[in-house]
């Protein structure tokens, strides 16, 4: 349906101080303050916050929020399956459907339909295969709101197998060193675990305490990570020399990591492609493993969805907007500023 003055999303979607807002549904998407109605795309802390009155999220995302914020993180938790079309609050009907975003377990794109206009908000997403979550699907729409975390042509994420191999080679070459790898506790951790197992690594993998609950949650969803041991359960830490330890990035340089023997620090993140970023994280072994689209994936997604307009949210908006315009789309930047870089 052509966009008109009557149904163009620019009239019913707004950037408000609390986040992206759908006026007729009186509902926010991933607000960074507690609000009345919130659609949550995925469980990362900068997108899923506690304390909303009503939450619409996929069952997996809701489970993640309960692990992080407790059973009662919100009084009204609406579990919505992928593909299930529901009507949001508000006098005039706005319909919402979740589709997989391929970012982490439970991550969803949000399709909103209002007066015949279709708007897709991707949330965070990626196109490379990831066994820890459902793959992204391109949904036809009029306005496509895409993230742009890695929205610069310098970003080309290599296949995860390649990066896992880098870690394994380093383990073989420096067999006396504890390979401490920084990974985000939600998503990246589980993906790296699966990646190591897929590459044939069968030894136990050691985990920082902050990882345990979420790894267990993934296990209840049926994922098999092989033998994982909490570092706090290891009686003699010297035995960790030559092993893989996964920890949140913040633990790489704090006191916790100093008790490990002969540490070689790695970091698994899309930012590791930029040399200086690796240094800034205090890492010596950069593993370019990202849960976001790289530049080419962003462009491919825009072409595939082929919307009338591309709206670019958090990240490097300028470059992606420029490129989308060159590709013939109407493009604008939403300049949502509340989200972390990754």
């Amino acid at each position: 349906m052509p966009l008109t003055k009557h149904n163009h999303p620019e009239h019913w979607i707004q950037v408000r101080p609390a986040g992206l807002y759908c006026i007729p549904a009186e509902t926010y998407i991933d607000p960074w303050q507690a609000v009345e109605n919130a659609i949550i795309t995925h469980g990362h802390a900068d997108h899923a916050r506690a304390g909303h009155e009503n939450v619409w999220a996929t069952p997996a995302t809701m489970a993640i929020m309960r692990v992080r914020y407790g059973e009662q993180h919100s009084p009204a938790q609406h579990h919505i399956e992928f593909g299930e079309r529901i009507q949001l609050p508000g006098a005039e009907p706005v319909f919402m459907t979740f589709y997989p975003a391929g970012h982490i377990l439970g991550s969803a794109q949000v399709l909103l339909e209002y007066r015949g206009a279709r708007l897709v908000m991707t949330g965070d997403y990626k196109r490379t295969p990831d066994p820890s979550c459902e793959p992204f699907v391109a949904i036809p729409c009029d306005v496509f709101i895409t993230e742009a975390t890695f929205g610069l042509p310098v970003f080309q994420h290599p296949p995860i197998q390649h990066e896992i191999q880098k870690l394994l080679s380093s383990l073989a070459r420096f067999s006396e060193r504890t390979h401490l790898v920084g990974v985000y506790a939600l998503g990246k951790c589980q993906r790296v675990l699966l990646g190591l197992r897929e590459a044939g690594y069968t030894k136990p993998i050691y985990l920082h305490g902050a990882m345990l609950k979420l790894v267990q949650l993934y296990q209840t969803f049926g994922f098999d990570f092989g033998e994982c041991i909490a570092v706090s359960d290891v009686s003699d830490l010297n035995l960790l020399a030559g092993e893989v330890v996964l920890a949140p990035p913040s633990a790489l340089t704090d006191r916790w990591s100093r008790k490990l023997p002969n540490v070689l620090t790695g970091m698994a993140s899309g930012w590791m492609q930029i040399r200086a970023r690796t240094k800034q994280k205090g890492a010596e072994l950069p593993l370019m493993i990202s849960d976001h689209c790289d530049w080419q994936e962003l462009l491919d997604s825009i072409s595939e969805v082929n919307p009338q307009e591309v709206w670019v949210t958090h990240g490097r908006e300028d470059a992606l907007m420029h490129q989308a315009q060159k590709m013939g789309y109407v493009a604008r930047a939403l300049r949502l500023v509340g989200y972390d870089d990754e």
């Binding site: 042509p153 310098v154 930029i274």
Partner: peptide
């Protein structure tokens, strides 16, 4: 795109 990339990197 070059200028934006260089600025960032």
């Amino acid at each position: 795109l070059f200028a934006l990339s260089y600025d960032y990197v």
